[in-house]
């Protein structure tokens, strides 16, 4: 899918984020191309989630540029709401809307923001629900579902907006171990369909198997990046070696 002549989908330049005196991101520069499945790994507190949340400005970066679809979305003049419609996000805590049925969760954004008709929005939602095996739960409420089911719904909710990129913020960290697999499976299918994905994760198996690039973030910057096989088999950076030694 990746075309060398094509400009990157997301181009991050010198991204900085400070919380008070603490510099969480220290001038990150990275390109994410269409079809990339980027897994970001690193110790806790390294800034992985902050990096991801800066990509759609849920955390407001302190400095730098993020060019998405040819537009610098950090420019105060850009309508961030419009760009967020093209960037799906999946959270560690699912964050489904508990007062709405599953179907309403899936259709409210397309119907409100993209002016889709009810039939069209529901039709597409059912299609996606079918693919994650939850079509029969459309009329239930989020809290009636297991964690794994809720997270699959959360992925579908983001997909219903037909985003150009999906951001995953530790999507399996809040799940019981037996439910991790079903969520990773859905993500793997997405990757197989060449969805552009940025995944912050602790699932090394997933990174090794599914990622097209794995990046190691520590101390506020990317210290190493490689394709997964080399990354895990032949790490160069000492901190990465130490980290992999602990988690593998």
């Amino acid at each position: 899918m990746t075309n060398a002549n094509e400009s990157p989908l997301i181009s991050v330049r010198n991204l900085e984020k400070h919380f008070g005196d603490m510099k969480v991101l220290k001038g990150i520069t990275v390109d994410i191309n269409k079809g990339d499945v980027v897994c970001v790994i690193g110790p806790s507190g390294s800034g992985k989630s902050t990096f991801l949340r800066c990509l759609n400005r849920l955390d407001e970066p302190t400095g730098g540029e993020i060019i998405f679809d040819g537009v610098n979305i950090l420019d105060p003049a850009t309508d961030i709401d419009l760009h967020r419609q093209k960037m799906g996000m999946v959270f560690q805590q699912f964050n489904l809307f508990p007062h709405m049925s599953i179907m309403k969760n899936l259709t409210i954004a397309p119907m409100t923001l993209q002016k889709k008709s009810k039939e069209e929005a529901e039709g597409y939602a059912y299609e996606l629900l079918e693919r994650v095996g939850l079509k029969n739960r459309a009329l239930d409420y989020p809290l009636q579902l297991s964690g794994g089911q809720q997270q699959r719904i959360a992925i579908v909710r983001a997909l219903c907006m037909k985003p150009e990129v999906m951001l995953f913020d530790e999507p399996t960290s809040a799940l019981d171990p037996e439910m991790v697999g079903e969520v990773l499976e859905v993500m793997k299918e997405l990757a197989d369909e060449h969805m552009t994905m940025v995944v912050v994760t602790h699932e090394m198996g997933f990174a090794r198997e599914v990622a097209s690039r794995v990046m190691f973030l520590d101390g506020g910057d990317f210290l190493e990046e490689n394709e997964p096989k080399e990354f895990f088999a032949n790490p160069q950076n000492d901190r990465l070696k130490e980290f992999l030694g602990k988690v593998l």
Partner: peptide, 25 residues
């Protein structure tokens, strides 16, 4: 807080998230 973040991440404005998601709850 995740409810506001989920609403905003879908592309809803602050006001829309407030009226459609936060306030009813």
């Amino acid at each position: 807080r995740g409810q506001m973040e989920a609403g905003r991440s879908l592309g809803f404005s602050y006001f829309q998230t407030m009226t459609k998601i936060i306030m009813p709850q």
